[in-house]
């Protein structure tokens, strides 16, 4: 980190807006890596974060993929959890009441296999108190279109966005999959379909082979790659999307240190999400707001948005 002495001390303001959602700082926990929040009890002070994004919920509970579900790769993690979750109703009944007490913004991540499912879930969540935004995972197979992921088909991505916006007044964040040729095409489509913000990237499709047992390392053969290994790709895609749309972008991918987070903010992300790093060290995200603040103070930068590089 650069450490220049300035004569006029600034008091950096870390709060940011995403649509109508105001976050006290730009650091959030990424979906699928922070459980339903309470698993982190005593290991991370959620109140120090800008927000938490709950494990992706579906309309009915899902049991997920058979094991092995995890494989470690150099600086990366492959997972094929298969979107295991307790379902939206059990979440509302058993988890939401405790989550209402945390002093950080609660964002719920949803996934579906049809536009109708996304619509139903958004409508259901809209009635519940304590939820401040909805993040929509569109990296799921569209059953009616032969199982192609919504997120790889710009039209389908736009339809989901439309449906969710119609179902709720809450800010809607569309989470993009990086497994496409041109990320800006999908980004533009969901932006014009009314998304309040875009978050990216979800995991990159990958695989590993166990040469001792001569079989794919994951029972599902393919899995999603996350962690420091994907950071350069995530950063490039965030840079591109920031310059293609005029809604806020949330950067995700391999962030561990304040320096990592600053790179994304300089690429133009309004906020960042921490995923795999929380699995390795639960308290990782807690240290980021202070690290970002220190950098801003040392460099005389008043707002998070002013970190963004030109061009």
């Amino acid at each position: 980190m650069i450490n220049q002495k300035k004569t006029i001390p600034v008091c950096p303001d870390l709060s940011i807006n995403i649509g109508t959602l105001r976050l006290k700082n730009p650091v959030l926990l990424a979906s699928g890596t922070c459980g339903y929040g309470m698993e982190l009890d005593g290991l991370l002070d959620l109140d120090k974060l800008g927000g938490i994004i709950i494990k992706g919920l579906s309309i009915r509970p899902r049991s997920g993929n058979p094991p092995p579900r995890l494989a470690e790769t150099p600086c990366g993690l492959l997972n094929s959890i298969g979107l295991e979750n307790i379902g939206i109703e059990v979440f509302i009944r058993d988890k939401l009441p405790c989550l209402r007490n945390i002093q950080t913004s609660l964002i719920v991540n949803i996934l579906g296999n049809s536009v109708e499912e996304y619509f139903e879930m958004a409508k259901r969540l809209d009635r519940e108190e304590g939820i401040e935004a909805i993040e929509v995972n569109i990296s799921c197979p569209n059953v009616k279109a032969g199982g192609i992921a919504f997120g790889t088909d710009p039209e389908a991505a736009a339809s989901v966005t439309h449906a969710v916006k119609k179902a709720t007044g809450l800010p809607v964040i569309i989470k993009l999959t990086p497994n496409v040729t041109d990320i800006t095409e999908v980004a533009r489509k969901v932006a014009s379909a009314g998304a309040d913000a875009i978050s990216l990237i979800n995991t990159l499709l990958g695989m590993a082979i166990d040469i001792k047992f001569r079989r794919p390392a994951l029972a599902n053969v393919f899995g999603g790659l996350s962690g420091p290994a994907i950071k350069p790709i995530a950063l490039r895609m965030v840079w591109q999307v920031v310059r293609a749309v005029d809604i806020p972008v949330i950067g995700i991918g391999g962030i561990i240190t304040p320096d990592d987070a600053l790179e994304f903010l300089m690429a133009g992300a309004r906020a960042v999400q921490i995923g795999t790093a929380t699995l390795i060290r639960p308290s990782t995200a807690e240290d980021l707001p202070a690290g970002i603040r220190d950098y801003m103070r040392a460099n005389n930068i008043k707002n998070v948005e002013n970190l963004r590089l030109p061009a």
Binding site: T33, K55, R69, I81, T278, L279
Partner: peptide
């Protein structure tokens, strides 16, 4: 089981 977090966050350690 193979584990990433050990704390119930990732759901990777399924049997």
């Amino acid at each position: 089981a193979a584990m990433a977090c050990g704390t119930g966050l990732c759901l990777g350690c399924a049997v």
